[in-house]
């Protein structure tokens, strides 16, 4: 399978997983409370009044801050969006080579895109030095055997609108920024076509 085909397949799979994750109640089951239970009476009353005013449309609702994928110690990632490298089931040494290939062209992707590595490979001493966000998908023992699949679905939902590439793209002979952009464009067009 070519990288272009693999990218299209990946895009469709992520869309399917993300749709499945939409029905997972985990997101609504864990609403942020930001310490309300631990504040004093005065603060809690003020928050309650604010909630009422917002409910009546008399006060603007705070806009949630976006989830950013850059890391503080990685320069030029302040506003970067994710380029998801999907690396579940990758072989460790091959993944290292692919990551280094992406790392070599990273300056050309920044500040627009920064890689986010979705992987079940445990190679964190290497990953830490890449300066990328790592989304790890571990296999846990009983009773949490279902955790990996559930987290994968969650990550698909989290990054459903982001460009995604198979990790093995980094091993292609003609790998480069222009190819990446073309793969992304082709997969997006294809996935949008009914």
């Amino acid at each position: 399978m070519t990288v272009a085909d693999e990218t299209k397949r990946l895009r469709l799979m992520i869309e399917r997983l993300a749709a499945e994750a939409d029905s997972d109640p985990v997101v609504v089951r864990y609403p942020p409370r930001f310490g309300r239970m631990r504040l004093g009476l005065y603060r809690r009353v003020r928050i309650a009044v604010g909630d009422v005013l917002r409910g009546l449309g008399l006060r603007a609702r705070p806009v949630p801050k976006p989830w950013r994928v850059g890391l503080r110690h990685a320069e030029r990632t302040e506003e970067a969006g994710p380029l998801v490298l999907w690396a579940l089931g990758a072989e460790r040494d091959a993944l290292r080579r692919a990551c280094l290939a992406f790392k070599a062209i990273e300056p050309e992707l920044l500040p627009e895109l920064v890689p986010v590595l979705v992987t079940d490979v445990t190679d964190f001493a290497f990953f830490s030095r890449l300066g990328w966000l790592v989304e790890y998908v571990p296999t846990l023992p009983a009773p949490a055997e279902g955790y990996a699949a559930r987290k994968t679905r969650y990550l698909a939902r989290r990054y459903r609108n982001a460009p995604v590439l198979p990790w093995s793209a980094g091993l292609e002979a003609d790998f480069g920024t222009e190819r990446i952009r073309r793969w992304i464009a082709e997969s997006t067009t294809s996935a949008a076509t009914p």
Partner: peptide, 22 residues
Amino acid sequence: TRSESNAWERELLVRFGLLLEE
């Protein structure tokens, strides 16, 4: 992370909740 504190805490809440549930 470059996410602001509230965004990171919100994400942490769901991620840790998912682990707790499993």
